[in-house]
Design a protein around this nucleic acid. Sequence first.
DNA 1: ATAAATTTAGACACTCTTGTCTAATTCGTC
DNA 2: GACGAATTAGACAAGAGTGTCTAAATTTAT
Lengths: 229, 229
Amino acid sequence: MKLNVSPDTIPPRGHEAKRVSIMDAAGEVFCRESFAGANIDMIAAEAGVSRQTIYNHHGDKEKLFVAIVRDLTERCNAGIFATISTFPDQPKDLEADLIAFAVRMNRNCICNRDGKFLRKLIQTEGERYPELFAEWREQGPGRTWPAIAARFARLAHAGFLDIEDPDVAARQFLALANAELQTTFMLGGTPTDDEVLQSATHGVRTFLRAFGKRQPAADAQKHSALAGA
Amino acid sequence: MKLNVSPDTIPPRGHEAKRVSIMDAAGEVFCRESFAGANIDMIAAEAGVSRQTIYNHHGDKEKLFVAIVRDLTERCNAGIFATISTFPDQPKDLEADLIAFAVRMNRNCICNRDGKFLRKLIQTEGERYPELFAEWREQGPGRTWPAIAARFARLAHAGFLDIEDPDVAARQFLALANAELQTTFMLGGTPTDDEVLQSATHGVRTFLRAFGKRQPAADAQKHSALAGA
DNA sequence: ATAAATTTAGACACTCTTGTCTAATTCGTC
DNA sequence: GACGAATTAGACAAGAGTGTCTAAATTTAT
């Protein structure tokens, strides 16, 4: 007998490929046209699949939509937690390390395809599917904000920052990092790498002016005079 | 002859009343349902008007939509400029005055009906009407950001703040003031007065930690030791 | 009161979309 | 090459929405 075990749960290869391309296309189209404006034929065409296949896989338009949002939420969360795990706990150059972190967060979680789509779907359809987006709120912001706040708290505890309320600081950190991208986000655009870097740089500088230690930390008293720049 | 001049341009009173209630209802419905999801009968019902009247006034659904966005852009801009004119040029208590300004900006321009509707329509339909929203971008952010930046520049010049780039500082000011309202905005909700105040307070405090003068200004050297608190 | 303008309800043709069904075809596997 | 499962194209009924038209009713100004 062949080594090909578990043929009972994993459907044929082609089946899964169709499933993925349907999800991709549906995300794209729902996002571009809104739920009401999207139609199944459009999605089918974009996925390179017949309309019937979509009904076979997902039942109806609404179930398809819900599946998309769940999928995006999950993938975005994974990305955010992966990025949080790169938070600079022992920074060599605090400013540079925080800028790099902010850029990673933006590029990999907020400006990328999934982030952009999820944001748009939440903004557009959030009010129509209260339970679905309540779920997103719990799974997304509800888990990611505290995780980021915890990292800032640790950084403060280690003497690198001067923070009273880590939750507030975490929200402000991301607000500052995105401050210059708001208009672009509004219109559904994707900022360039350069814009992301600019915004992160300005944001982190302001953040450190507010929360940075005057005399850096621990062994740093010797060059405190230089640290202000 | 009567004093009632210019009857040639001003249509009857009732006509104008219908027009207004159509605009109100259409804003409401387009916002709630998105362009594709909205239907004329819904708007007519909500406006207390027959479907035909809407066609008489606006021609078709798309023209109606464009009229709504133009109208909202205009009204929001007026509100923003009115609020900018209350910017504290000669603050007695810098922190309190900036918090009050941030709260006014939020309450009167961003969280109010018009602000909420315009934001949602831009997010939802921005990509479908590029010229319309390019227009918004020029008339809105394109004119309001520099106006706010100019006020911060003046405040810095008068010695109340320590700012290098007023444009960046202005964007960061508003980003900080809204930092804690983002999730609510995303889902189309309206934050409570208390949430607005909280966010503004935290935001302004951070802003002043970053950009506030250590020794306040001009005649203030004498009590510089107290100013840090 | 009367005349002009506006609004109204309802019917209407037309188009678009959803979701189902069927028969033919393709695909993956043995 | 042959079998079974999945996919496909196309037709289809049912429903919903747009924009037009008409004749009656209502409002507004003279």
